[in-house]
Design a protein around this nucleic acid. Structure first.
Length: 271
DNA sequence: AGGCCCTCCTGTAAGC
DNA sequence: TGCTTACAGGAGGGCC
C-alpha cells in the first residue's frame, strides 16, 4: 500500500514521539506477517534508547545501540503512537512500549508487512542491500536511467516499480510520473530516448517531492500516524481516474492491465 | 540474466 | 438485502 511518500509521512509522524525515548517492552501479538517476526526481540530491545528512525525505500529502520529494527508496511500496514493503556485495534500485530507510557503499534490487516532484525548494519540486510538509489539521490539521474533501460524490453512502468533500479516507487507514483513525462506506461523501456529519460527522472523527483509535502495519498487504508488523511490523491492526474477526463486535454483516461496490475494513461498526452 | 507469473492475507466494493 | 467475486498501494521467489 504505502509507497515512499506515505512511508516518509509515517516516519515523520512517529519520529517526534520516538526520539530520545527508551523501549520498555516488545510485544508480538501475531508473529506470522510476510515472514515470522524474529524471536528474542524483547530481550534485544528492552531498555534500549531509540537513536534514530530512518527510511530506505519503503523500509523504516529504527536504530538502537543494540541493533536496528527494520519495518515494512506491505500493502496495508500503518504505524501509530498511542497511550500504552489504549485498547488494541483489530490487526495490531506488533507493539513497542516506551518508558513514557506511549506505545508504537503496527496494524496490518493483510499481513504483507514485515518486522525484521537488522543488527548493527541494517543496510546490509538481504532485503536492503540490492536496492537502487532513492529518487531524490543525485545518483538517480538521466544517465543512470538511460543506462539501466538500454536493451530492456520491460514496460517502463514495471521498471519504475523495480526497487533494484530506483527505490520506493509503487504503482501510484509510477503512473503519475509517466503522465507528467508524457510516456505511456507500456512503452518498452529500452526504446525511451535520452531526452525522455531526462523528463521522466525530473517527473519522478517532482511527483515524489510534491506527494511528501501533501502527506502522501490516502486510498483504501493509508492515514498518517496522526490519523489525518494524505491529500496528494487530489492532485492525481491518472491513477484511479479510469474513464474520467484528462486534466490536461479532456480525453478519457484509459485503464489497462499491465503485468497483472492496472496502468493508467491519457493516450493523447502520453506517447 | 531478464522478465513474467504466482503467492501470501483481509477488507471493500461492485455485480448479480 | 445478501451472497459471490474481483481487486487492491508490495515484492520475493520460482520458473522459463
Amino acid at each position: 500500500m504505502p509507497e515512499l511518500p506515505e512511508v516518509e509521512t509515517t516516519r515523520r509522524g512517529i519520529a517526534k514521539h520516538l526520539y530520545g525515548q527508551t523501549i520498555e517492552q516488545v510485544i508480538v501479538r501475531k508473529r506470522q506477517l510476510r515472514w515470522p517476526i524474529p524471536n528474542r526481540l524483547n530481550q534485544r530491545l528492552a531498555g534500549q534508547p531509540i537513536a534514530a528512525i530512518r527510511r530506505r525505500a519503503k523500509y523504516l529502520i529504527l536504530e538502537t545501540p543494540a541493533g536496528a529494527l527494520i519495518i515494512h508496511l506491505g500493502m496495508s500496514g500503518s504505524l501509530r503512537v498511542v497511550a500504552t493503556d489504549q485498547a488494541y485495534e483489530k490487526h495490531d500485530h506488533f507493539v513497542l512500549n516506551l518508558v513514557n507510557s506511549k506505545s508504537l503499534r503496527l496494524r496490518d490487516p493483510r499481513r504483507f508487512g514485515a518486522v525484521l532484525w537488522g543488527g548493527q548494519h541494517p543496510d546490509r540486510h538481504t532485503l536492503l542491500k540490492g536496492l537502487g538509489p532513492e529518487p531524490d539521490d543525485k545518483a538517480f539521474n538521466t544517465d543512470y536511467l538511460y543506462r539501466k533501460t538500454r536493451k530492456r524490453r520491460r514496460a517502463i512502468r514495471d521498471v519504475l516499480l523495480d526497487g533494484h533500479i530506483v527505490a520506493g516507487i509503487g504503482n501510484i507514483y509510477a503512473n503519475e510520473a509517466l503522465f507528467h513525462a508524457g510516456i505511456r506506461p507500456g512503452r518498452a523501456s529500452g526504446r525511451i530516448s535520452r531526452p525522455h529519460c531526462d523528463k521522466l527522472v525530473t517527473a519522478i523527483k517532482e511527483v515524489i517531492r510534491a506527494a511528501i509535502r501533501a502527506g502522501g495519498s490516502t486510498l483504501r487504508d493509508f492515514q498518517s500516524p496522526e490519523g489525518k488523511p494524505g491529500y496528494f490523491q487530489q492532485t492525481h492526474y491518472v491513477y484511479g481516474r479510469g474513464g474520467q477526463p484528462c486534466r490536461r486535454c479532456g480525453q478519457a483516461i484509459k485503464t489497462r492491465a499491465l503485468g497483472g496490475r492496472r496502468a493508467f494513461s491519457c493516450t493523447n498526452c502520453q506517447l
